[in-house]
Computed example of a mutant assay.
Amino acid sequence: MAPIELLLIGVLAIEGAFGRLNSRQPSGYTPHRIVGGADVPPGEHVPYQVSLQYQTRNGQMHFCGGSIIAPNRILTAAHCCQGLNASRMSVVAGIRSLQEIGSRSKVLSFTIHPDYKELVTSDLSVLYIDPPLEFDNTTIGAIDLQSNYVGGGVPVTLTGWGLRLWVPFPYLDDVNYPNVLQRMSYHTITNQECRNAGMDSVTDTEVCARGPFRGACSGDSGGPLVMRTDEGLKQVGIVSYGLVVCGLFISPDVYTRVSTFTEWIVGHLEF
């Protein structure tokens, strides 16, 4: 199977079990979500996590994740923005469930990395939002960026509003797509291990992670992969792409490597 961006699994293998057309997503895309995760417990918060939502005829719809890097800046994947109308996009912060109101800000515009090539490199974008988010560092707060190279065998954690199953089975959306934020932990692997596992085009601008029957899948796109350091949590990666069937042990997830782009990201924190 060929790798695909986590936002785009819907139209492949329509007659098989590897994907489906999904009316939840803008522009005919399928949102990517977590396999093998568990609900973030009541009373706990992931203050840096946001839901990217798109205005449709049926209302606001979650389609990607993102992370707060400043009161008026959100970090996400380039493929979550490419071809979309910023005026129909918004972000919601401070929520555990997609049914909560939270703090909503409009997306004024976004900047996609100039070197972005689909499934190749530089899959990141910075959103400019208004009004700025009000930090309380409990329910809403920024995540620090990991500036040092991360190798294999490092424990990492992914959060997102995720698909519970390996593929989105038709007519089971209420089971497939939980409203509660999901959290899942596994380990990074080296880029060579990632290539050996079938992700032939992985470059040094990306970092891979893998674990048994778990991983990013259909709404997680653009979301934050974090690690714990002596200085606290830091964002290591941005959900980019994987295989059509999510959560297979042999199938790594590919993330944009934040440390490669720290200077570019920081350069977009100010007007």
Rank of each mutant, 00 (worst) to 15 (best):
V92P: 08
V167G: 01
D204T: 05
S251K: 05
T138I: 15
I112A: 11
G65N: 09
P42A: 15
E5P: 00
P132M: 02
G215M: 00
P168W: 09
C217W: 06
Y186P: 01
S221W: 07
I265M: 10
G102F: 02
P42I: 13
V154Q: 04
E231D: 15
L133A: 01
Y149R: 10
V150Y: 02
T262S: 11
E5L: 10
T159E: 05
I189F: 00
Q55A: 15
V226I: 12
L12P: 00
Q49I: 08
S67Y: 07
N176E: 08
K117H: 09
G215L: 01
I250S: 14
I140Y: 07
G59T: 04
G222M: 08
D173S: 08
D115V: 04
L52R: 05
S27T: 06
A17V: 11
V50D: 10
I250K: 06
T138E: 13
Y48K: 07
A70P: 00
D220W: 03
P41L: 15
Y149T: 10
R257M: 03
Y128R: 12
H32D: 14
G36S: 01
S87C: 07
T256Y: 00
W166K: 11
R195K: 02
R257E: 05
G237T: 04
M61E: 15
P26I: 12
P47W: 08
G237R: 04
C64P: 01
N191C: 02
A77S: 04
D220I: 05
R20F: 01
H187D: 11
A77V: 03
E231G: 10
S87W: 06
L98R: 07
V120D: 05
W166V: 08
N148H: 13
N176T: 06
G102I: 00
P71R: 00
